[in-house]
């Protein structure tokens, strides 16, 4: 793996907890890797697994989905559905041969700026170790 590989990671954050958590990390001047491209969604339960797949297809090396802690969902139960759905999706990706280090999920609340930093660091570290993801890129062939 080349030393200077900078992974490209798409993060889907829920509006009420994780996005606010990331925001807090920013206003608290906590440094974390800049490889994360944040997309705000209203709830982690809104993250269609196809988003994850499409991100990988369009050049992301890894994907992170983050939402409220179980029981804290702004919509009462959205993150429970997300957990079930994306848990199974992770199993599927792994079975098809996508490195499990490329897809992560986390719970980060609005007050957990530090946890956000840890989650990002861990994700970036994992994706970096997994290397660039070329195999699945849409624009690889016969153009």
């Amino acid at each position: 793996m080349s030393e200077d590989f900078e992974p490209n990671i798409v993060a889907f954050l829920c509006n009420w907890c994780s996005y606010a958590g990331a925001d807090l990390a920013g206003t608290s001047r906590i440094h974390y890797p800049a490889n994360i491209k944040v997309i705000r969604v209203m709830c982690s339960g809104r993250v269609n697994p196809l988003y994850v797949m499409n991100a990988l297809q369009q050049g992301a090396d890894g994907v992170l989905v983050s939402g409220c802690h179980p029981g804290d969902c702004h919509y009462m139960e959205g993150n429970y559905y997300a957990r079930r759905r994306l848990g199974i999706f992770k199993d599927l990706l792994e079975f098809v041969g996508v490195d499990p280090r490329r897809f992560h999920m986390s719970w980060v609340s609005a007050s957990e700026g530090h946890k956000w930093k840890e989650v990002v660091e861990k994700t970036v570290e994992d994706v970096r170790a997994a290397g660039p993801f070329e195999g699945f890129r849409r624009r690889q062939i016969d153009w």
Binding site: P49, L50, M53, N54, Q57, I88, F89, L92, L93, V96, F136, R137, R138, Q140, I141, D142
Partner: peptide, 23 residues
């Protein structure tokens, strides 16, 4: 979501989506 082009990338996306919809 999935382009009509038949290549490895789209085919894989199709089969992942199909399998997942049946999970």
């Amino acid at each position: 979501w999935i382009n009509r082009a038949v290549n490895f990338s789209e085919n894989t996306a199709f089969h992942i989506a199909r399998a997942f919809h049946l999970a």
